[in-house]
Amino acid sequence: MKHHKHYTDEELLCFLDGEGDAAEVIHCWQCRVRMAELEKSVASFVHLKQDVLDVELPSGAGPASLLRARMSMYKPGRRYAPVALVCLLVGLYFVWPERRAVASYLPDQRVTPGATRLIAQDQVCVLSASEDERKPSQEMAKQVFEQYGIRNPQPRQFEVDYLIAPTLGGADDVRNLWPQPYADSVWNSRVKDALEDLLRAKVCKGEMDLAAAQHEMAANWVAAYQKHFRTKVPIEAHALFVKDKPWE
């Protein structure tokens, strides 16, 4: 048998990916081992992408209908299409669910941007446990429900939750409150609590700025959770949501 010139990584990868016209059997063990190593790198990259890099995407229903509407305005030769499109877009601005305050595991930024009270970094670390149990007043809760267009909130459906937790210097302010649905997401308040504890610990250890922690909570607490716990989905221990202890 003639001396075999080993394949390059590039050639081996092309075999693996079914690119090019090479479909020959590779007899050389050394080349096959190299192939397996490349395949292993592929696997670790795919896992990394799934576990860390990919974020949870919002539903595509709103964007899809916006696109459909915009396409329907463009008929060849229809001269008034631009005017009609503007009207449509203005209309959609008010109708498109993404644009309206919707109670979800993430608050609507326009209604609930988050609000803080003046507090020093080291004060956060000596806050008593009572900060933890702070509840918004009935009056404020009513206002919050109104803003989110919820007429008759059923008692077990929502929790009016602080966006920036009091333990992180969040204010008793309607702008810092939103109705968090109990049922419809794995991103529940228990999971959020775990993040708050972690961020508070980081702030107190001097690993993180208080303002940065507040900002991350307000901007997108789910993304912050995914980033700090390095996971796409809530850790099981955090996600086990016991609303009321069953024996009570």
Binding site: D9, E10, L13, C14, E19, E37, L38, K40, F45
Partner: peptide
């Protein structure tokens, strides 16, 4: 493309 992919994957190698 193929050269880039091969290079990137070999960098990622365990």
């Amino acid at each position: 493309v193929s050269a880039t992919l091969a290079r990137a994957l070999s960098r990622l190698q365990v």
